[in-house]
Amino acid sequence: MIEFNRVKKVYPNGTVALEDISFEVGDGEFVFIVGASGAGKSTMAKLLLREEKVTSGHLTVGQMHLDNMPDRVVPYYRRKIGMVFQDFRLFPNKTVYENVAFAMQCIGEPKKNIRRRVPSLLEVVGLEDKLKSFPDELSGGEQQRVALARAIANNPDMIIADEPTGNIDPQKSMEIMNLLVKINSVHKKTVLVVTHEKTLVDYFKKRVITISDGRVVGDHRGGMYG
């Protein structure tokens, strides 16, 4: 599914964010990517989204080679990825329903399909009774659940969650993480969670890839943080 092959990323200002990164993630895997802030975790997410290009080495997702992907293909590639951010990034002037529907509208999904699918997506994240609420009427945890529903709206192959619990209180964090595990196991999506929350990582006993100073320093299945 995902293959990092001797990937190096140097930013234009000379900062070396990632150095000689090699690992593979198989279809349907659940992986935590952990490390201190500044270790290069977010750069990894940016490379996977093709927001940044690798400086050298190869990055392959599915059949797609991200290192020489033409710009016009990028939107179609991104439809295969559901992205979840620390700051939710919901449209504040759209309701919960509209936020999820918009993701489908963006890629030209017919209205009929949108009307049918959005309620079931919101059911998956347990927000079926908040259709008409606006993001600022919801708690952080609820907002992140809307973002999760949006991330899976277009039936992506993979979910990338960049610090998804960073702005949420601890007991709600567990709910979000449970949802991600559910999306992984029930909906068969590959899930990558970038985080530095030790308790959560230790609790779920999934594969953990540890990054430090731009290098992979640990890769353990059923592993623990650090």
Binding site: R72, R79, R89
Partner: peptide, 13 residues
């Protein structure tokens, strides 16, 4: 900000 979200969702230019 909307534009950046649209980009992540996979909206074309």
């Amino acid at each position: 900000q909307e534009i950046s979200i649209m980009r992540y969702i996979g909206a074309t230019s």
